[in-house]
């Protein structure tokens, strides 16, 4: 008899604690819901903060990195002398290996018309080292820049590159606008 009593008391205790936990869980969930969004969040590089440190190539959990160079063509000067393509002190402005800045020869240079050349990134070869982006920004218009390519990125909860990025250039953006391409994401103006 007494056994039964202790048992029922125990059951009552357990179920009231359980009820409390349900309430607490609901509270936490409700609070979180207040600042929740429908959108998913993805990682992206703010090209204006990027300082071309090369860690995108070395610190991504993927190898080769999900960070690739992209080319904002509308900003490109289509120059013959391209600071993002040629090494400084190049012997001539040709596509020969000794003149190329890119360690994997991922930039394809194509003559269009005098005096314009197109520079195109071969994504399969690009490792996201930012060398060309640095050259392009130092000497040119900065049209070559890095972006996280979302068909490769596994969207880690905590981006391993963001943790080591010295300029905090890797940020979370909405999945509905997953790229911060130079030339179109600052639709502001006077």
């Amino acid at each position: 008899m007494e056994r039964k009593k202790t048992k029922s008391r125990r059951e009552f205790l357990v179920s009231s604690v359980r009820f409390g936990m349900v309430l607490a869980l609901g509270g936490v969930g409700g609070l979180a819901l207040k600042s929740a969004t429908k959108d998913q969040w993805v990682w992206q590089i703010d090209p204006f903060k990027c300082s071309w440190c090369g860690r995108c190539a070395t610190h991504c959990v993927l190898n080769p990195s999900a960070v690739k160079c992209v080319h904002a063509y509308e900003l490109c000067g289509y120059c013959d002398l391209c600071g993002g393509y040629l090494i400084p002190g190049h012997s001539d402005r040709s596509t020969a290996a000794e003149n190329q800045l890119c360690p994997t020869a991922a930039i394809e240079r194509k003559f269009i018309e005098e005096p314009y050349y197109e520079y195109k990134i071969n994504e399969d070869l690009c490792i996201g080292c930012a060398k060309c982006a640095e050259g392009c920004s130092a000497f040119g218009n900065g049209s070559l820049h890095l972006q996280i390519m979302h068909h490769i990125c596994v969207n880690c909860n905590e981006c391993a590159i963001a943790r080591v990025c010295p300029s905090d250039a890797i940020i979370r953006v909405r999945g509905s606008e997953p790229y911060l391409m130079k030339g179109d994401f600052t639709a502001d103006g006077e």
Binding site: Q40, V42, V70, H71, A72, Y73, E74, E118, K120, E123, Q147, M149, H150, H151, C153, N155, G175, P178, Y179, M181
Partner: peptide, 10 residues
């Protein structure tokens, strides 16, 4: 000008 391919996330 070529289009820049920006694949959508999942």
């Amino acid at each position: 000008l070529p289009d820049v391919v920006t694949p959508e996330p999942r």
